[in-house]
Amino acid sequence: MEKQKNNKKLNGKDLLNTGIFTAIYFLINLLVAAALGLIPVVSMLIPLVSSLILGIPMMLYFIRIKKFGMVLITYIVYGVFLTLAGVGIYSLIFGTICALIAELILRSGKYQSANRAVLAFAVVSIGANANVLQMVVAGGKALAEKAATYGTDYVNTIAGYYERGWVLPVIFASAFIGGLFGGLLGKAVFKKHFIRSGLV
C-alpha cells in the first residue's frame, strides 16, 4: 500500500474494501427496513434511522477513502441491487448523482477532512433513500386503479396520505439530518475507538 500511495487508480485492495463496506451497508439497511417497514407510518422513519445507524460504519469507510471513485462504486452497486430486487430504479439514479456530489465534496477536502466526510455521507444518504419515491409513485398509481372499485371516498382518504406535497421533502430532509447526525456520531466513535485501538 505504501508503495502505491501516489497512485490515483483504484487497485484490488480498494475494490475489496468497497465490497466489504457495501455489504455492511446493504445488510444494515435491510435489517432496519425489515424492522421498521412492517408498520406503515413508522416506515416513513426508515431513512432517518438507517442513516443514523449507518453513520458509524460509513464514517470508518469515508474517512479512510483516499481515492476518487469508491463512494461512487458503493452506491452504484447498492442501487443495482435494489433495482434487481424490484425496489425501483430511483435509488440507482439519485444514488449515483448524490454519490458524485459526495465524491466532489470529499475531493475538495483532499480526502483529509473528517467534517467533509460527514457532509458527504449526509448528501449521499438522500440519494440512497430515494427508493421512497417509488413507494409514493406506486402507491398513488395503485390507488388510482382502485378508484373504480372502492369509490372515491376511500381513495381520497389514502391519496391524501401519499400525495401530500410536504411528505417527500420531509423524508429527504430526514435522510439528510439522519446522515448528518449519524456522521457526527460515527466521527465520535471513530475517534473514541478506531484511532485509539490503532485500527486506522
Binding site: 483504484l10 484490488g12 475494490l15 475489496l16 468497497t18 465490497g19 466489504i20 457495501t22 455489504a23 455492511i24 446493504f26 445488510l27 471513485g69 462504486i73 458503493t74 452504484i76 452497486v77 443495482v80
Partner: peptide, 18 residues
C-alpha cells in the same frame, strides 16, 4: 468493468461472514 464485479463478489463472500 472489474470495478463493479470485484465489490459484488466480495459482498457475496461477506454476507455469511458478517
Amino acid at each position: 468493468s472489474k470495478k463493479f464485479t470485484i465489490p459484488v463478489s466480495v459482498m457475496f463472500r461477506f454476507f455469511p461472514t458478517i
